[in-house]
């Protein structure tokens, strides 16, 4: 059996709490908020998220203050005598209209963002993603490159029931694959997504992309990654027993490097390794 809640947990907790209160997520040992991400869309969605969040916080502060004031000021034990009023049309109109205005103010940017994300025109390359129980298949449409992406072997070993291996010793426990999807940076990439068996969903938080893979239908979406790097996500629709074990890893290369990489893959060499499905 693996040990351990690590000893420094509590310290981590405090540091992170303080850090997050000071509004500096960089210092936090773990995240408490949505990632800003590395695409324009993810940044927009992050802003939207923070906007709604703060709106809710402000409303919460006002509403909760009123409630708390009641709890403090109108206590029977302090001799409060109940008033007898039971309605006020003015008040009720006010607290119907104000929320309407707030909601309209929220709906506008939300709708705008939605429309922008939906626009799949002018994409520069297309990748077809197919979900399987329990792995992903990536096909570079028109390039004759295609391969499967499985949970990395070491994670797979560790995640067995009572494996006795400590997950903390792994670098990217459950978030690593044998072959990542490789894409170029600064490129508007269209992805076509479907499934071969049950519904899956392809989710990379840093891209703010989540789309269901529906068997028999193809959904499409797009992303454009601004910064090269390795980004991780997971299947986000319950797809059976190993739903928790089909991560998504995307390696974003600068454009030239990507072109070189793609050239190296062509000719079916890649397809062969696909057979090593679990």
């Amino acid at each position: 059996m693996s040990t351990n809640l690590r000893k420094h947990d509590f310290n981590t907790f405090l540091t992170a709490l303080v850090a997050s209160l000071l509004g500096n997520p960089a210092q936090a040992a773990w995240e408490v908020n949505m990632p800003v991400g590395v695409t324009d869309a993810s940044a927009k969605i992050f802003d939207l998220h923070m906007l709604i969040f703060w709106v809710c916080v402000v409303i919460a502060v006002i509403v909760f203050s009123a409630m708390i004031y009641c709890l403090v000021a109108f206590r029977k034990s302090k001799g409060a005598v109940p008033a007898t009023f039971s309605h006020s049309t003015t008040a009720e109109i006010v607290w119907t209209v104000i929320p309407v205005l707030i909601l309209v103010a929220m709906a506008v940017p939300a709708a705008q963002t939605l429309v922008e994300i939906d626009d799949t025109r002018d994409t520069e390359m297309t990748i077809k993603i197919t979900g399987y129980q329990w792995k992903w298949q990536y096909e570079y449409v028109g390039e004759d490159v295609s391969f499967y992406s499985n949970l990395a072997a070491s994670s797979n070993e560790t995640r067995q029931l009572r494996s006795g291996i400590d997950p903390f010793q792994e670098d990217n426990y459950l978030l690593d694959v044998d072959r990542p999807l490789v894409v170029p940076a600064d490129t508007k990439i269209r992805y076509l997504i479907t499934s071969n068996d049950v519904i899956h969903a392809w989710w990379v938080p840093d891209f703010a992309v989540k789309k269901d893979a529906i068997p028999g239908f193809i959904n499409e979406g797009w992303f454009r990654v601004n910064e090269p790097g390795v980004y991780r996500g997971q299947c986000a629709e319950l797809c059976g027993k190993d739903h928790g074990f089909m991560p998504v890893v995307v390696e974003v290369l600068p454009r030239e490097e990507f072109t070189a990489w793609l050239a190296g893959q062509q000719g079916g060499a890649a397809v062969a390794s696909a057979a090593t499905a679990r």
Binding site: T120, G216, F217, I218, E220
Partner: peptide, 17 residues
């Protein structure tokens, strides 16, 4: 209609059916 390629399902029809 979607299976036949309508709406945003051009590829559904082209690649699957």
């Amino acid at each position: 209609p979607w299976l036949g390629g309508e709406g945003s399902n051009f590829f559904t029809n082209l690649l699957l059916w």
